[in-house]
């Protein structure tokens, strides 16, 4: 069976994505089950130039590092082209390539006072 994967962008100009891997669960507060999509999850920052990242979720701060994936992943987007009567023609479009992930595997540190870190993830 042939699956056609189309890549619109050329070689090397693919968008690069990243994975944030957490050891644990991010749970919404009980009062927010209805408004889940617009929630601000947390703040990811790189405090120094090293590959050390902090991720602040709620009153927890996670510390993790950037690790390369053994096998890069692609991010596909399934596009359905309805044609004819029988079904639809499915096309998978490459949206991005993932070569790195940021792994947070350490126990979170509780934040007593709030600290605002404004740096954003920068691939």
């Amino acid at each position: 069976m042939e699956i056609r994967v189309r890549c619109n962008c050329g070689e090397g100009s693919c968008e690069e994505w990243g994975i944030v891997e957490l050891q644990g669960v991010v749970e919404p507060q009980p009062g927010f089950h209805d408004s889940l999509p617009n929630l601000h999850i947390g703040t990811l920052c790189r405090p120094s130039s090293q590959e050390v990242y902090t991720f602040t979720v709620g009153y927890h701060e996670l510390t993790g590092s950037k690790v390369p994936l053994k096998k890069p992943l692609v991010v596909l987007k399934k596009v359905k082209h309805p044609d004819g009567e029988s079904g639809c023609k499915v096309e998978l479009q490459v949206v991005g390539v993932i070569r790195h992930k940021i792994l947070f595997k350490n126990r979170p540190k509780a934040l007593i006072s709030k600290d605002s870190c404004e740096a954003t993830y920068d691939p």
Binding site: V26, P28, Q29, G58, H60, V90
Partner: peptide, 26 residues
């Protein structure tokens, strides 16, 4: 400020790897 809370799981990280059929892609 805290709509979401993080809950840490003890032990190793266990990314959920679920078998997916090709059919589902298509």
């Amino acid at each position: 400020r805290y709509p979401l809370l993080f809950k840490y799981n003890e032990g190793f990280t266990n990314a959920v790897k679920r078998p997916v059929r090709i059919r589902e892609f298509l």
